[in-house]
Each structure stands twice: as C-alpha cells, then as structure tokens.
Design a protein around this nucleic acid. Sequence first.
DNA 1: ACGCTTATTGTAAGAAGTTGCAATAAGACA
DNA 2: TGTCTTATTGCAACTTCTTACAATAAGCGT
Lengths: 147, 147
Amino acid sequence: MTCGSEFAPHLRSRGFRVTTQRLAVLHVLRHSTKRLSPGQVWQQACLSLPGLTETTVYRTLDFLVENGLAWRIPLDKGHLVYEIAGPRHHHLICRNCGDEMQVDHSLVSRMYAKLEAASGYQLSGDHMTLFGLCPECQKSKRLKGVT
Amino acid sequence: MTCGSEFAPHLRSRGFRVTTQRLAVLHVLRHSTKRLSPGQVWQQACLSLPGLTETTVYRTLDFLVENGLAWRIPLDKGHLVYEIAGPRHHHLICRNCGDEMQVDHSLVSRMYAKLEAASGYQLSGDHMTLFGLCPECQKSKRLKGVT
DNA sequence: ACGCTTATTGTAAGAAGTTGCAATAAGACA
DNA sequence: TGTCTTATTGCAACTTCTTACAATAAGCGT
C-alpha cells in the first residue's frame, strides 16, 4: 500500500493513529477515477481489508474530510460522495443525464472574495457542486418542449 | 389554512392534486422563520393533521422542491433542511457556532454567468450554502490559537 | 521486544430516509 | 350529487446512516 508513506506523517504529526482501516479507505479514494459513495468505498476497501465495517468507513470518511485529506460532496438530494483531496476545483452536474464537469476554482474565486468582503466571514476551501442542464440536454429538452 | 388559495392554482394548473397533506406541509414551511428538517416538518404538520406519515412528508418535500415551491438546503454533513421558496438568496454558515447569514443573489450572479459562459451549462436557480467562520468565531479562534 | 495508555474499531441497537404495493380520496364529467 | 379515473397516501419492509460502549491495537517509553 504505497499510500501509507504518503499520508502517515501528515496524520501522525497531528497525534492521530495510522490504522490499516484508514489506509485501506485512503487507498480506495486515492485510486478511484470517480467520486464514491460510502457504500462503494466500503465494498472496494473490503477487497483489501476483509472484515472492515461500514461503520468504520463512515467514521473514517468523516475523519479524512475533517483533516483535509478527502472532500465530501453532497449530490442532488443530499447523498454524499467522496473524493481524495487535490487541486481545488468544483463540479457542475447535469440534472437530466448526470453528466459531470469540472471547473477550475479560478472561475469562482472572485465571488468568494466578494462574499468574504461583504459578510466578514472567512470561507473555508470547500468544494462546490452546482446543478443545471448540460449543453446536450438543453438541446433535447428544447426539442421535446420540456421546461 | 390561508395557504391553500395561495398555492392551489399553481399546483392544479399543472395537473397535480391539492391534498390536505400538501397543504399541511406547505403551511408549516410558510409560517416558519427558520429552515426545518423533515422530522421537524413532520412534527409540526402533525399538529394540524394528525396521522400524517413521515413517508408522506419526505415525498411531499421532494415534490415541493421539484415544483419550485420550496428549497432544499444541504447542511454540513448532507443533512437536508427545507424552506419555503422566496426571493433568491444564499446562506453562509459558521462551522464553529452555527450562525447563519443570508446573502443576496446579486453577489454571486456574476459567477453564475461566468460559469455558464465557460461551461455551456444552463445552471438552475439553486440555493447555495457555503461554510466558513463568522467574524466572531474568527476572533475567538485566533485567541485560542486554533486553526 | 514488552507493557501501558488511550485513540480507534467492531458490535449491536437505533434513527433517518427510501421503496413497492394496495387502499384512499382529489378532480373531472355526467 | 354520484361515479369514475388515477394521483397520492399509508403501510410495512428495507436500506442507509448514527451512536454507545466494550474490545482491540497504534504508538510511546522502557
């Protein structure tokens, strides 16, 4: 598990323990091309660590998010998916076909600044997910006369 | 229930039925000063409509959101709260003390336009919730040396 | 390497949210 | 008003997520 050396110092230095469970979850996130639900993480992590509990996966995901190693992204109806933390970006999701598109943080950074100035809040570096219709679905919806 | 006359035409004209359950839920949202979880909506709606099911409340809230009569807002860990639809605004929430602040849509409308131009997506008029530290908590955190 | 401390895990029970299907009642028409 | 159609509800089983507490094992000091 090559991820260990990568993350272990970061965790240990803060007084947290590096457990096989955490490494297994981290490994799954680290090598997934797409965002995963807790259930999916659990299934995949079980492959390398049989006996791993769903409860632990939930707790571990929370833990990773709280320590900046993973991102938690709420989907349309509040269902959560997780991805390994990386260069900051956001997602647009098509309500119709489910297509997902990454957008760079630079496109929204001015808005963050504006909000911070207006509110006095210090915003945390969250991932943002916005919903809409992708170009493809806009066309087909228009053809069908759907709103 | 004064809300009936307000919403009934909007629903009926689209072929939906105006049921006592929907009116009860709508009434609760309409007269609440704060956003409510499904459980809270259920408790309050039961007061005026005993026997109302939690299942129905969940379904009704989804229905109202889908028809633009209510907004669904995901909190920190994906828990959902609902509020009656109204003039468009967004929320900043303090991770530390839970304080909530409304911000006008005008502050983020340029970002929406920028994203739409860059992506080709047609974004839906969603409520946005961002997290951070309120001015008060920034001060106290700094005193305590917390990050 | 061995034992100690306590963060972390597993277990089990519970809360929250979802789904399929039969029963109910809203709205339309006579 | 009474009857018909079917959208909507309630019920019950189910999945997903959360919590309390005792058992385990990570990391420290010897």
